[in-house]
């Protein structure tokens, strides 16, 4: 029990720290730190999505950039149509662009959910190495499609000239946008916790541990895993929409397999299957990028070394190091 409460304490500390950060950044007159913290919150949310499939469900998806990018493109495309006052399509029914975040989020969630459903439907027929390679391959397919499809910028990407709007919040103010992202991150963590403790979560964890037993009690593992994969893709897609708004830019690089690797790295750095693992991982990742990226352009060399060290020698990630082994590992 002692180790569990240490993890809870760490979670509370992380939450308070993230809440206080923008005020501290403003007080010491370093507004750029708010942007960094926004990146942390968004990548953390993408990681929370992946963590549901990867940590709870044991589905090693190496293609989550697909959902991240789909969410990003949903935001970019809707915003660009709203800016140009051109409808996305006129027949059979009219669809117009929008710059309202709430609508954009909904579209991003739906689009990435459909993407995850289709990819999951095919790739969940397999498991193990096949699953890794197939999720990677389908993500790459969408990546190449985005590069060769000229309507929305192709290889050059798509700019969002004005950050999209949220009722009652000035999204152009870094603090306002940060708190939107942070609130969604917390909602994502809350959803993960709720799912994990529900009957569905119990079924998902047994699908990871022993599929035969799960089938024997009358639950189809395939449906459980597909549902988890879709919810996971939706969360990552929502993060993608926020990421597009943060950078005011969408490009195929959001869909590239380096992005999949990046999301996976931060889940691993934080601790697989831990509720706050992705957030802890994102904090470390961004700090690492900020410090080493400022010193040398070859910072990814050192990232590689650190990752190698974590995989070979510190498998529980940072939360594992601080809070000890998880109860159910």
């Amino acid at each position: 029990m002692a180790s569990l409460s240490r993890e809870t304490l760490l979670n509370i500390f992380l939450t308070i720290g993230m809440l206080a950060l923008p005020f501290v950044a403003t007080a010491i007159d370093e507004p750029f730190y708010i942007t960094l913290a926004t990146r942390v919150a968004i990548l953390g949310l993408a990681g929370v999505g992946l963590n549901l499939a990867l940590g709870t469900g044991g589905l090693v998806s190496f293609g989550h950039a697909a959902f991240f990018g789909l969410g990003g493109y949903a935001a970019g495309i809707l915003a660009s149509h709203a800016l140009n006052y051109t409808p996305i399509m006129e027949s059979p029914f009219l669809i117009e662009g929008t710059n309202q975040m709430l609508i954009i989020w909904l579209v991003a969630i739906i689009v990435s959910g459909i993407g995850a459903y289709l990819i999951g439907l095919l790739s969940l027929r397999t498991s193990g190495v096949y699953f890794i390679m197939i999720t990677l391959a389908f993500a790459q397919m969408i990546y190449y499609f985005a590069i060769s499809w000229p309507a929305y910028g192709g290889e050059d990407g798509l700019s969002i000239y004005v950050r999209n709007a949220f009722p009652g919040v000035n999204t152009l103010d870094p603090q306002g946008f940060y708190f939107i992202c942070f609130a969604l991150l917390m909602a994502g963590i809350w959803l993960s916790a709720t799912l994990k403790n529900s009957r569905f979560g119990a079924a998902l964890q047994s699908a990871r541990q022993n599929e035969e037993r799960l089938s024997a009690v009358g639950v189809k593992p395939f449906n459980i895993k597909l549902t988890a994969f879709v919810i996971s893709g939706m969360m990552t897609g929502l993060a993608g929409a926020l990421f597009a708004d943060l950078n005011r830019f969408v490009s195929p690089s959001m869909l590239s397999w380096h992005m999949s690797g990046e999301i996976m790295i931060l889940v691993i750095l934080g601790g697989v299957g831990r509720l706050y693992g992705p957030l802890a991982g994102a904090i470390i990742y961004i700090i690492f990028e900020f410090i080493f990226g400022g010193m040398t352009e070859h910072w990814q060399f050192f990232l590689g070394l650190v990752l190698l060290g974590v995989v070979l020698f510190a498998r529980g990630g940072v939360i594992g190091l601080i809070a000890g082994r998880a109860r159910h590992d």
Partner: peptide, 30 residues
């Protein structure tokens, strides 16, 4: 590196070899 991964699960193999990619690519760029 690889020798230590034979008895690990696929996730560890993916991550460790992904780390090798970062090291090789940046090393080559250097």
């Amino acid at each position: 590196v690889i020798r230590r991964l034979y008895n690990r699960d696929h996730l560890d193999q993916v991550l460790a070899t992904f780390a090798l990619i970062l090291i090789f690519s940046e090393g080559c760029r250097f």
